[in-house]
């Protein structure tokens, strides 16, 4: 099942598709009707289609061209991944000290709370995560839902502040949008642009935060690459719903393997005859969450534990509001985002 080729995706030839002019006119009509009503000024907003590809297209294209001279004609061979779900729970190593580790880190740092400032967290690979005031109020609010900016920002902040070099070398932390891009069929150049900075091909663990759009639920998958194991975590301790996630994760994995190979990076795994299997990082029907707002915080706690080399945490639902505060303070130890241009004005 590993060796069979199920699909072939052509690499992008000329960057991004441009939209048709007719579409823009259609859009304008509906916009005009929607917003302007009777006293319409149709000229209020118009969409311009550039003749030549935009600058940003070139940046993405470079990523491929720089490494692969024949990218325009080559076809990426995607392997057919099948992930078999098992119910056996692996031996769990409990991270009993992560709260203490954050407290200790905070006591050694100056944090400067300011509700009106966007913070910037730059990861070890130079990728930027911005968390603005609205995101921070979600993180801090005891019953607020977390968005992707909270998840990616805090996870990156943990990676930047709490980990040893050994920890960092072990894990590739994916962005919550990486899986989304596969679900929505982004092309290979964009996938590679976002994934390459993690240097995932050299890391034994890949951490994939999963956003279930239909349920508005955060869960987590962790891939132990060489062992061909996928571990999955849901704060509600439910196995339901994972089938669909594994389909998407399998697609993402096949892209990651093919992209790494296309760029000359070899990833070692167990023999092709060994199937991929998935195991829960929770005991079925022993949920950690009973409310309807903390799944993102649970995912962040698990991400922290796994980044630190453990596989579970020993906290209770009652601890979550305090942990939200700790995560918020952690973000406040990172610098304010400074505007690039005309910084002195306004």
């Amino acid at each position: 099942m590993i060796a069979s080729v199920n699909s072939a995706v052509p690499l992008p030839a000329g960057g991004f598709q441009r939209h048709q002019l007719e579409e823009s006119e259609e859009l304008l009509d509906s916009e005009g009707a929607l917003f302007e009503g009777a006293n319409a000024d149709e000229q209020d907003l118009s969409i311009i289609e550039p003749d030549e590809p935009a600058e940003s297209v070139d940046i993405f294209q470079e990523v491929l061209d720089g490494n692969d001279g024949e990218s325009n004609t080559e076809v990426l061979q995607l392997e057919d991944f099948v992930i078999q779900m098992e119910s056996s729970v692996p031996p769990m190593q409990v991270d009993t000290t992560f709260v203490h580790a954050i407290e200790q880190y905070l006591s050694s740092q100056e944090d400067s709370p300011s509700l009106h400032e966007t913070r910037v967290i730059i990861d070890i690979h130079g990728r930027k995560q911005l968390i603005d005031a609205e995101d921070l109020s979600r993180l801090q609010g005891p019953t607020r839902w977390l968005n992707n900016f909270c998840i990616n920002g805090v996870a990156t902040a943990i990676m930047k502040s709490l980990l040893s070099e050994e920890d960092i070398a072990r894990s590739a932390l994916l962005d919550t949008l990486d899986l989304h891009r596969v679900q929505y069929g982004s092309d290979e150049a964009i996938l590679w642009h976002h994934l390459a900075p993690t240097e995932y091909w050299s890391k034994p663990l890949w951490l994939i935060p999963v956003h279930r759009r239909s349920q508005q639920h955060w869960v987590l998958a962790v891939v132990s690459v060489e062992e061909k194991l996928v571990f999955f975590y849901d704060s509600f301790a439910e196995v339901e719903g994972w089938e669909a996630d594994f389909k998407d994760i399998a697609t993402l994995l096949s892209h990651m393997f093919a992209l790494a190979a296309a760029h000359g990076h070899k990833i070692n795994t167990k023999a092709a005859t060994v199937p991929w299997s998935a195991h829960p990082l929770f005991h079925q029907n022993v949920p950690q969450q009973s409310n309807s707002h903390d799944c993102g915080v649970w995912v962040l706690c698990m991400l922290t534990a796994i980044l630190r080399g453990y596989s579970t945490v020993n906290i209770a639902e009652a601890d979550i509001p305090y942990i939200r505060k700790l995560f918020t303070r952690l973000i406040y130890t990172f610098p304010r985002y400074v505007r690039k241009k005309r910084g002195d004005q306004r």
Partner: peptide, 17 residues
């Protein structure tokens, strides 16, 4: 995500639109 569109607006057009 790498794709761009140019929108021409008046300075007083609300962002909602």
């Amino acid at each position: 995500d790498g794709e761009e569109v140019q929108i021409k607006v008046k300075p007083n057009t609300k962002f909602a639109k």
